[in-house]
Amino acid sequence: MRWCLPAGLALALAGCGQVADISGAVAGGGAALASSNPAVGYAVGIGVRAAVSAGVSEVMKRRQGAEQDALATVIGALEPGETRPWQIRHAIPIGNQQGEVRLVRVLDNALAQCREAAFSVTGDATPAAPRQWFLTTACRQPEGWKWAAAEPATSRWGALQ
Rank of each mutant, 00 (worst) to 15 (best):
R102W: 04
A10K: 03
L71K: 09
A77W: 06
I92M: 13
S36H: 09
S36L: 10
E58P: 00
D69H: 13
Q68F: 04
G29R: 07
V52H: 12
I92Q: 09
P6G: 01
T126P: 01
L78P: 01
T137G: 04
F119K: 15
E143F: 05
D124K: 13
R131E: 10
G81A: 03
A7Q: 07
G28I: 04
S57P: 01
G76K: 15
E151W: 09
A77D: 14
L33T: 00
H90N: 14
W145P: 00
A51Y: 10
I46M: 14
V40H: 09
V101F: 06
V121C: 05
R49C: 02
G29C: 09
E82Q: 15
L135P: 00
R115E: 00
R84I: 05
A150L: 07
I88M: 13
G158K: 14
E116C: 03
Q87C: 12
L103P: 00
G65L: 12
V104P: 00
Q18H: 12
M1E: 02
G81D: 06
A91R: 15
I22W: 13
E79G: 02
C16M: 11
W3C: 03
I88P: 00
R62F: 05
E58M: 07
G95L: 08
V48T: 07
C114N: 02
A159N: 07
N37P: 00
S23I: 01
P38D: 00
L160I: 06
L78G: 06
Q18C: 05
Q132I: 04
Q161N: 15
L33C: 08
A77P: 02
P93N: 10
R115N: 02
A77M: 10
T83S: 14
E100Y: 06
A70M: 08
E143M: 04
R156P: 00
G95S: 07
F134M: 05
A118W: 12
F134Q: 10
A91T: 15
A34K: 11
L9T: 15
G95A: 06
A149E: 12
W145L: 09
A148E: 11
V101M: 08
A7K: 09
G45L: 01
W145R: 14
N37V: 08
V101C: 13
R115I: 00
Q132C: 03
D124V: 09
D21C: 02
R105Q: 14
G123H: 13
V40Y: 00
Q161I: 04
E100I: 02
D21M: 04
A7P: 01
R63S: 04
P93T: 06
S35W: 15
V19R: 14
Y42S: 03
N109H: 11
A129M: 06
A50M: 06
P80D: 02
A43R: 15
R105N: 11
Y42V: 02
W147K: 04
A148G: 07
L33Y: 13
R131K: 10
V19L: 10
A129K: 15
L135H: 14
R2H: 03
P152N: 07
A54S: 08
A77E: 13
S53P: 01
G41V: 01
I88K: 15
A51W: 08
Q97Y: 01
R105L: 09
W145F: 05
L9Q: 04
W86K: 12
P152I: 12
Q68R: 15
Y42C: 02
G81Y: 14
A66M: 13
Q141V: 02
P130Q: 13
